[in-house]
């Protein structure tokens, strides 16, 4: 799952290295508009619909947080 997420993130913000432990939101690597693009891409890639109430910064701040979120939707 992680490689797919990194690929999507790299398409959204190609100037950053997302294979890192840094907090993507706090560091400014992702803003709220990026999160919209990210959710749209994740929905499409994993054939899910991330609940609007799950679209909060903490669920997209690290790769681990995103893996945990997608796991909740049954993604592998």
């Amino acid at each position: 799952m992680k490689p797919k997420i990194i690929l999507i993130l790299s398409e959204i913000r190609p100037e950053f290295d997302f294979d890192s432990q840094i907090n993507f939101i706090e560091s400014g690597m992702l803003d709220s508009f990026d999160v919209v693009s990210l959710v749209t891409a994740l929905d499409e890639e994993f054939n899910i619909s991330i609940d609007g109430l799950d679209i909060v910064p903490e669920n997209f701040s690290t790769l681990e947080a995103m893996v945990a979120l997608l796991t909740k939707y049954g993604c592998k």
Partner: peptide, 14 residues
């Protein structure tokens, strides 16, 4: 103040 690529992604999503 966005890149063209980012703007076009947002165009589709929003």
């Amino acid at each position: 103040n966005f890149t063209i690529a980012k703007s076009l992604k947002l165009k589709a999503a929003m």
